[in-house]
């Protein structure tokens, strides 16, 4: 296959569908941040354990997105294959910390 210029590359994709996919993934990530943050508070995690818990659940979520949403073929739905693992993970961390501290019922 011949190499393509950036203009040709852009015309290969449907921008509405890219935006739709990013919106779907962001919805999943922010909901999961709220849920896992609440769980971390309920479990009473402190310090690094909370961030390790976030990393583990984010990885689990990414795996389920990869398996259920993209049927193990992320190349069809994302421009880069790693997007399915990284999209919105860092942004969700802040909602996670918010819900973690909110539901921390231990004193």
């Amino acid at each position: 296959m011949a190499t393509r210029s950036p203009q040709n590359q852009a015309s290969l994709y449907v921008p509405e569908n890219i935006a739709h996919n990013v919106k779907t993934i962001t919805f999943i990530r922010s909901s999961m941040s709220a849920i896992t943050g609440s769980a971390a508070g309920i479990l009473g995690l402190t310090g690094y354990f909370g961030f390790i818990f976030y990393g583990t659940t984010a990885l689990f979520t990414s795996f389920l997105i990869w398996a259920l949403k993209t049927q193990a073929k992320p190349g069809i739905y994302f421009r880069s294959r790693t997007d399915v693992w990284t999209e919105g993970v860092f942004g969700g961390l802040f909602s996670y910390v918010l819900f973690w501290t909110l539901l921390y019922v231990y004193d």
């Binding site: 290969l12 999943i28 659940t57 949403k69």
Partner: peptide
């Protein structure tokens, strides 16, 4: 707590609706 997190994960992923293929040839 851990079971509820797992159920929520699967539920949210199923509730989010299908992704759309981005390549113009699929469209």
């Amino acid at each position: 707590c851990l079971v509820s997190v797992s159920i929520c994960t699967i539920g949210i992923i199923l509730a989010a609706g299908p992704l759309k293929p981005i390549l113009i040839k699929h469209e």
